[in-house]
Design a protein around this nucleic acid. Structure first.
Lengths: 220, 220
DNA sequence: ACCTGAACACCGTTCAAGT
DNA sequence: ACCTGAACACCGTTCAAGT
């Protein structure tokens, strides 16, 4: 809601910071498609054109909020063994990407990585190098870890198995398609995904640990 | 001009098929943002409103082309051992997603999976179950494999390390940010990514094989 | 049955002007 | 220095009509 304080000088002035924070709020609340220069201006209690004094264009807003999301991800804690450190960072990244489901798909369009993004990359690569991974192997390891984290976030954002509606969606799927045609899918849905307490999000740690096991093996 | 007779200059009638094929052509050629009802109509030599006779709205087009992309992915060949079969399917998926870089990020918005999508899921799950994986483990395995494939596709579409421009982008990165601030990133770029012949795409098989190794270990 | 023109309510962005 | 109104060239989609 726009601040309706009387007195022209009392309004918090717009800043790049506030523009980006507002953009994240709109995207979190109403989805990335609902983030328009106009809706963002409304959110900030301002006219659309005011935004252009703090940001060159919409693309810069998108780049900015992607980097802000990266800044929310915990850096691998230094002074911890590499496996624990990278595990923590991966869990943090996944938590952050679940909070901002629009972020992972948006990364496709990011052209220039921001400072927080570069800092993340540097910290993860540093952790791997100090653990004894060679430069090429560190490249492999980083690519693998981050592909998994982003891909999982993508699936979590997309999959019809959203925590609360999983049962309904699963049943709707089964209703639309005869289970004879997709027997293994039907088995998975009825015997696994529809079970009370099932949460797709729980799959994350399985894959993460399998990957970390595999990387650890490379060091010996 | 009554041109109702079958003549040489007659337009092929619009079909849902042709609409989707045209949409993929526009997205491949000019990017997903350039795919509008109007640009698609132009591509098909028709007025925008004609599209609505074959497709309910733009969202249906997006759902349709995502499913068409899934249809391009090779199913795991039956009668082959599970590891070879899933490896082939993953390589095929990755090839398809590189051909259509707009596809992976778009999957976030897909609401109702199409027939080709369900068929893929069923075939992969079937391969895993026949290999001896339990239902919960098959769920783990599938989540891990596909997260990796989609995440890799996402990174490949996003990363500034595009094959041809890798060197330029890498150097531009180094120029914008002092290498003292991101020493490990600088090391990676200069000693690895900028080397002639480096192709980020080559990282794919490393991660894939590590994952398959880990899954194989679960069977013993 | 299939296609279209005109119109509506939206977009991002520019320009010139207001305080 | 910061904000805005009006305007432009675009969107997706509806409606009523054309062949």
């Amino acid at each position: 809601m726009p601040e309706t304080d009387a007195g022209p000088g009392r309004r918090t002035p717009l800043t790049r910071e506030r523009v980006l924070r507002g953009a994240i709020a709109v995207a979190d609340g109403s989805g990335i498609d609902a983030l328009t220069m106009r809706s963002l201006a409304d959110e900030l209690g301002v006219k659309p054109m005011a935004l252009y004094h703090h940001v060159a264009n919409k693309q810069e807003i998108l780049d900015g909020i992607i980097d802000a999301v990266f800044a929310e991800i915990e850096l691998p804690p230094p002074g911890t063994d590499w496996r624990t450190a990278l595990r923590r960072r991966a869990l943090s990244a996944r938590r952050v990407l679940r909070r901002h489901p629009w972020a992972a798909p948006l990364m496709e369009s990011r052209t220039a990585p921001g400072a927080a993004t570069l800092r993340q990359h540097d910290a993860v690569l540093g952790t791997l190098r100090r653990a004894g991974f060679s430069v090429p192997t560190a490249a492999h390891a980083y690519s693998l870890l981050d592909s998994y984290v982003y891909g999982f976030a993508l699936q979590e954002a997309a999959l019809p198995f959203a925590p609360e509606t999983a049962a309904d969606t699963g049943r709707a799927l089964l209703a639309r398609f005869p289970s004879e045609r997709y027997p293994h899918l039907a088995e998975m849905v009825t015997e696994h995904a529809l079970r009370p307490g099932y949460d797709y999000g729980d799959e994350f740690e399985f894959g993460l640990d399998l990957i970390l096991d595999g990387l650890q093996r490379l060091l010996r």
